[in-house]
Structures are given as structure tokens and as C-alpha cells.
Design a protein around this nucleic acid. Structure first.
Lengths: 191, 191
DNA sequence: ATAAAATGTTGATCTGCACCAAGATTTTCT
DNA sequence: AGAAAATCTTGGTGCAGATCAACATTTTAT
């Protein structure tokens, strides 16, 4: 069971005393998902916090017959439906594996115990959550004020690698534009 | 200095032992803003967490020549630029008073000390932040998938009172639609 | 109370982008 | 390797909603 990536991340953010790290590490359990497999279904309460050892995942909602993609998670990042997990309330989102995924996960009971027992961990979770909020606010601002082309360009400059990593129809959904429009924008930029 | 509203809110969410409440209460200081006064400017680090005793405030960004309104805060809610405050990083947003505002505020130094000293408070801040994240995700989903009319209707059903409270041009900006379109939608619904 | 500023309304254009559809290409599965 | 499924491309069309503009109304400040 590989905790290397997670340990590296933890150390870079907040070095923990050895015994706290032990307690934390003991709560993670490996789990695998196949490509296209749905990890969490709308209506459920998110049972786990995930850490991605390998693969790409997508968080999305169904609105009528359309999907709205909220975010992607990647190798080396946390995953799961964070608000549903922390508040233990039903979610209206789906989490699915876009590629075969190798993940670690922690149950809510363990998470709750750790945060109550170790103030450092509680604090670290808070700051991680704020960072997520900050990123979402930034994207929100773009949705409110950018044209399709501006959103497209921003994606290209901020995360060019996702073009090879994620099917374009999902990137289009993430930007709130039509897949055909995405394709047309792409062709204008490639010249 | 009126801590009534704040105390009521705190008790409803998480009753604190008396001495913790004392420590918390001692950190708040009253402050007033005039209508249209800018409370925090883009580029700054948010110095304070606010609690609104009276008034309405608006959080927005400038993108080119347009404003994108991210959220409103009201009597009885917290205010401030939460991510900038908690992370002590510069913000790209502005906070302004839409009406004359009567607020309480707490410095970051006090906030930091309280969260380190009292695990209950640290935890409560985390859960408040998650709740904010949850609400923002919900709105994000709507921006991605709703038409102007759908967003308009949702606003009317969820918060009809804001129609009397907030100038419609800001509501339009909040929904990401043109003020003229907002006005036209309003007239169709009034019949 | 009055002037001035801000906000809201309404109609007439104009356009960005969604929508549709059919074919080309790529990826996945066995 | 080959068949099937998924994804991407590209052109044509239509419309939701932005933009423009002029006037009406409401709110604020003195």
C-alpha cells in the first residue's frame, strides 16, 4: 500500500510529529476503480475521503439531460465529494473515475476521530477546505464574466496538460460550453 | 456594542462553555460603513472577519470593464473575504457596503489565537467554511447549466426578499446576466 | 422640497454560441 | 488484429440574450 505520495504532500504542507503521522497513515485503505466506474452517486452521503495515487476522476452534476462538470482530481490530489463528506449530508453530485484509478480512502468515522483528537489535523483540513473555496471562487468569477473563448484560453494557459489527459467533451462541460464550440476554438488556436 | 445577534447564531450552531464565549466575545469590535463605502480593496490581504449587525454588503470582482458579483452578506451573517482572510493572501475581490452597515469585526491575530486555543472554535470555523463551499458549488452548478430564465426563477423562489433589498443591477450581475434582461424577465413574471 | 444622481424599463438590433447532423478519427475491448 | 464504441471535427442554422439607446421612475443628498 503506497503512502509515499501522501506522505510527501503532508510533509510539504505541515510536517507532523511521528506518532500523529502513524495515526493518520493507519486510517487509509487502498481501493481501485475501473475506467468509467461511478464512485459516489447523487443522493448518497459521501462515505470516504480519497487520495489519488493514480488516475483521473471527475465530479459532476446532472441538470435535466445535461451534465455540469465541477472539477477534476488527479494523481497526487485528494478526491471525493468534500462538502457531503465533511457535513455528512446527501450530495447532488456524482464522482466517477475517468481512467482506471488507484486510490486510498478514509472513512468518515476515522476522519472525525482524527480531527477531534489532533488539532493540527483539524486545522490542516480547515486550510485545505479554504484553499478549495478560494479556487472555486476564482473559477466562479470566470464563469460570470468570461466568453467561451476567454474561458478556453485561460484553461490552455493554466493547465495545458489536461488537453492530453481528459476527453475534450468533459473539458467543454467544465467550461460550460458546447463540445463543438470547444473543438472549433481548439482548431483556431492550433494554427 | 451589540453581540446579541452573534450570540444567538453561535448558540444555535454550537453552544460554547461560558469562558470560551467570553474569550470569543472580547475579540469583536464595532465598526460602521457608509452606503457605497469600499470595505476591502482588491490587492489587499483581508484583515478582518466581519459579522453583520445591520446592512447589506456585496463581494465582487472587476474583470475588464465588467463587475462579477460573487455574493451578498446580510444582517445576521458573517462577512469579509473569507479565503483571503483565512489564508492571509491577497484577494482579487472587493467588499463594499450596499447600505449603511453596522458590523462587528475581529482581527486575524485574534482569530488565529482563538482557533489555536479552542479546538471547538477551530472546528466550527471549518464547518462554516465547508458550508460556504457547499453553497458555492450549488451556485456553480447553476451557472454551468441554467439559462438566464432558470437562474432568474431560482433566485425568485429561493430568495424573493432580495428583490426589495438589493438593486436589480447587482442581482443581474450575481446571476451573470444583463440588467436589461433581468428587467424583462421580471416583467414577464409579474403578470 | 428640489435638484441631481442612480436605477429601472422597453423596444429595436445584432451576434456568440448552442444546436443539429453526418462523417472522420481515435480509443477500447476481446 | 479487428470490431465496436466513443470521441472529435466541421459546416449550416437559429435563437437567447447581449448591446444600444432614449425615456421613465425612484432614491439620495442638500
Amino acid at each position: 500500500m503506497s503512502l509515499e505520495l501522501l506522505r510527501k504532500l503532508a510533509n510539504s504542507m505541515m510536517p507532523l510529529p511521528d506518532h500523529e503521522w502513524e495515526a493518520l497513515a493507519a486510517c487509509w485503505h487502498p481501493v481501485q476503480f475501473k475506467r468509467k466506474e461511478v464512485i459516489t452517486v447523487a443522493g448518497e452521503v459521501e462515505k470516504y475521503l480519497y487520495f489519488v495515487n493514480a488516475g483521473v476522476q471527475r465530479l459532476f452534476c446532472l441538470e435535466g439531460d445535461k451534465e455540469a462538470t465541477l472539477l477534476f482530481t488527479y494523481t497526487g490530489s485528494f478526491s471525493g465529494i468534500m462538502d457531503s463528506f465533511q457535513l455528512q449530508q446527501p450530495t447532488s453530485a456524482y464522482l466517477e473515475a475517468l481512467t482506471a484509478s488507484d486510490m486510498l480512502r478514509m472513512s468518515y468515522a476515522d476522519f472525525d476521530r482524527l480531527t477531534l483528537q489532533y488539532p493540527t489535523i483539524e486545522r490542516w483540513v480547515r486550510l485545505g477546505t479554504v484553499a478549495a473555496l478560494s479556487g472555486l471562487l476564482e473559477r466562479h468569477k470566470e464563469l460570470l464574466s468570461f466568453t467561451a473563448e476567454q474561458k478556453f484560453r485561460k484553461l490552455l494557459t493554466r493547465s495545458p496538460h489536461v488537453l492530453q489527459l481528459i476527453p475534450h467533451k468533459y473539458l467543454a462541460s467544465y467550461l460550460g460550453i458546447d463540445p463543438a464550440t470547444f473543438s472549433k476554438l481548439l482548431s483556431t488556436v492550433k494554427l
